[in-house]
Design a protein around this nucleic acid. Structure first.
Lengths: 219, 219
DNA sequence: ATTATTATTTAGATTTGTCTAAATTATATT
DNA sequence: AATATAATTTAGACAAATCTAAATAATAAT
């Protein structure tokens, strides 16, 4: 079944918000897609008609198996294009999201699979998020910890859990990117800020807000 | 100015049909875009409003300077993606048009220019058509002859002037692709068919209809 | 020059995706 | 439990892009 761009964006948002098996509520989707709750209700009826979501009035939304399959395809396309943009076209980490947002809707099965081959069938995108394979299999989570919860001194940046341009630009400016090694100098309890150091740079402090979004693995 | 996909497709068709300075008529555009003349009239009003075309009732359509600029950008994007698909993702000559038709509407200046760099700034696409540069400069024509008008025996295929899948598949099946060397064995006057030979293959005959679409350069 | 034919436009309707404002249902608070 | 607040849905409207059918203009043929 061929979906419109709008339908794909709804499916993607529902997938993103539906963590585990929680039903997603109208307001959250509206906020995520920068639209109005009433529009979400309208679209919910269409997607239910197409059997991509389960939906009963006032009861929230969950993806059907079919819907989840579609979502994973879209996520796959998005993340593969992000890889392409970063690795082949030398875009920086923080520039790719919006462009991939457009490219992900180009729907040729063959194109996606060839692109994947061309990139060497990567399993994670430049933000550290896993890429579903052609069958829709995806490694469950990043199995990473956010910087504010990490327990070791020396860490490697493996992703960010927020993709707003504002944040990505901030990280870019600070020289924090995928693979960057970080030493935790100090944690300040009064505001949960963290002082960190990246090699060849003076130490600096980041807020709790930011440290919550930086996903790291211990080294 | 950001255009919708529909608007871009109209601009592209008008550019394609408006050879030299001829005004393009409603019916031709409708046929090209597989739509109805009435829809063309509707869109013509919008595009005139946006100053992309000159249009007076019953007088046909021509692009303004601004419209031509847009058209060249779209053509550039289309042809660069075709290069990418053929050269990097190993698509065959006859598969790329439809996919590029979708990719061409992804509108990031930076993306197109990076893509061009990545491909080594090619000047012609896999069909032999010239690619406009970032400033919209394009080498006027293919300066090639169609096979039915060629005068020399030995030729090299440099493009096709028709991009219907039917034709491209036919050529693919016959082993005729960009760069293929052809020897003209015989021309039959009664139906203008041409007997040709490709190395390592038995000779075969193609109709006038087909030979008119194959663009060649003498060797 | 009149008529026939073809091209083009208008008028009114449809679909998709959206919106606002009002009504309804669910949830939280006292 | 009654009421306030928040979430959700309905109803009715709108813009974009399209369509059909009818009307009008341009062109060709007699």
């Amino acid at each position: 079944m061929k979906l419109t761009v709008a339908e794909e964006n709804y499916i993607k948002s529902i997938y993103k918000l539906q963590d585990g098996s929680t039903a997603v509520n109208t307001n959250a989707i509206a906020y995520e897609l920068d639209t109005k709750p009433a529009s979400v209700t309208d679209m919910a009826k269409k997607l239910k008609e197409k059997k991509l979501i389960d939906y009963e009035k006032y009861q929230g939304i969950t993806l059907t198996a079919e819907g989840r399959k579609m979502a994973l395809q879209i996520v796959r396309r998005h993340r593969l294009w992000e890889c392409f943009l970063v690795e082949k076209l030398s875009f920086s980490w923080d520039e790719v999201h919006e462009i991939a947002e457009e490219l992900e809707h180009v729907g040729s099965e063959k194109l996606v699979n060839r692109l994947s081959d061309f990139l060497g069938n990567p399993t994670t995108d430049p933000h550290g998020d896993p890429i579903p394979d052609a069958q829709g299999k995806i490694s469950k989570s990043k199995q990473l910890v956010s910087l504010d919860k990490a327990t070791t001194r020396r860490l490697e940046v493996s992703g960010v859990s927020d993709q707003s341009s504002a944040l990505l630009e901030f990280l870019h400016a600070k020289g924090i990117k995928l693979g960057t090694q970080i030493d935790v100098i100090e944690r300040y309890e009064f505001d949960n800020s963290v002082e960190i150091k990246i090699k060849n740079q003076p130490a600096f402090t980041i807020s709790e807000q930011v440290s919550k979004t930086i996903m790291v693995k211990p080294l």
